[in-house]
C-alpha cells in the first residue's frame, strides 16, 4: 500500500521546550487513524507540523511521497472550532467557497456559478444546506463543525485531517460526522482524527496512535488502550 504521510525523527518546540521529540509515524493511503493522548501531549502540534503551520526544528515529513509543501495541497483540514474567528461576518456558503481559492494569491477572484453549486452540494452532503445564508457566528457547535467538514471536502482531498471534530457537538451531529468520515474513508480518502472520545475510538476498531511527546503505542489492541 502506498504511503499517505511519512514522518521521520520529528521534533517540534514551542518557546524552546520540546512538544514533540523524535517522533516517527507512517500512515498508509486509505487508512483511518485516530490520534489520542493527554492534553499538552502534542496531538495538535503534530497535526500543525503535518500541515506546515508549525516548523519542526528537526525531522522530515513527506506527504503522498512528495515534499511537504507540495503534498499538503492534497490535505483537507478541519480545525478545532476555537481556531476559527466565529464572530467574523461571513456566511456559511462563503466559508465553503474559500476552499476553491487555490493560488498563492487570487486577485479579482469571483466564485463562478458551478463553484457555488458545488459548495451547496457539500453542504447538502453534511445536512446543513438550509444554513447556507446564515452568518457563521449564529451556528451551534455541531452545525459549525459540519460546515468546516464541508469546506474541507470541497477541496477534494486525498487526506482528511480533523482536530477534535466532535468536541462539544450534540449526539446527532456527532453521529452524522462519524458517518461522513467512514463514508469518505470507504471512498479511499485517508482519514486522521485527533480525538478525546476514547469510547468511540475503542468501538471503531481503527488504528489508534497514542502520543505524549513521542508515540507511546500504535495499536488498538495494545492493552494500555483498554486501561485509558
Amino acid at each position: 500500500m502506498d504511503t499517505a504521510i511519512k514522518i521521520e525523527g520529528l521534533s517540534v518546540a514551542y518557546t524552546n521546550e520540546d512538544t514533540l521529540t523524535d517522533l516517527s509515524l507512517t500512515v498508509k493511503k486509505g487508512e483511518f487513524v485516530y490520534i489520542i493522548g493527554p492534553n499538552g501531549g502534542g496531538k495538535t502540534t503534530l497535526i500543525k507540523a503535518i500541515l506546515g503551520i508549525l516548523t519542526p526544528h528537526s525531522g522530515e515529513i513527506k506527504i503522498l511521497s512528495k515534499k511537504h509543501n507540495i503534498g499538503k495541497r492534497k490535505i483537507g483540514y478541519v480545525p478545532q472550532k476555537s481556531e476559527t474567528e466565529r464572530d467574523f461576518p461571513i456566511t456559511v456558503l462563503e466559508v465553503v467557497e474559500t476552499a476553491f481559492l487555490k493560488s498563492q494569491l487570487n486577485p479579482f477572484r469571483l466564485f463562478k456559478a458551478d463553484e457555488k453549486q458545488k459548495a451547496m452540494e457539500y453542504l447538502t452532503l453534511l445536512g446543513v444546506e438550509n444554513l447556507a445564508k446564515a452568518q457563521i457566528g449564529t451556528l451551534s457547535g455541531g452545525e459549525l463543525q459540519r460546515v468546516l467538514i464541508a469546506r474541507a471536502l470541497a477541496r477534494n482531498p486525498e487526506i482528511l485531517i480533523l482536530d477534535e471534530p466532535c468536541a462539544n457537538t450534540d449526539p446527532p451531529s456527532s453521529k452524522k460526522i462519524h458517518e461522513i468520515l467512514d463514508e469518505q474513508n470507504r471512498m479511499g480518502v485517508t482519514v486522521i482524527v485527533v480525538s478525546h472520545d476514547i469510547n468511540h475510538v475503542l468501538q471503531s476498531k481503527n488504528r489508534t496512535v497514542f502520543i505524549n511527546k513521542q508515540i507511546l503505542f500504535d495499536d488498538i489492541a495494545d492493552e494500555r488502550v483498554l486501561r485509558l
Binding site: L51, G52, I53, I75, L101, S103, R155
Partner: peptide, 8 residues
C-alpha cells in the same frame, strides 16, 4: 490555518 494549507 486553513488558508495557509490551501496554498494561499
Amino acid at each position: 490555518a486553513f488558508a495557509e494549507i490551501s496554498g494561499i
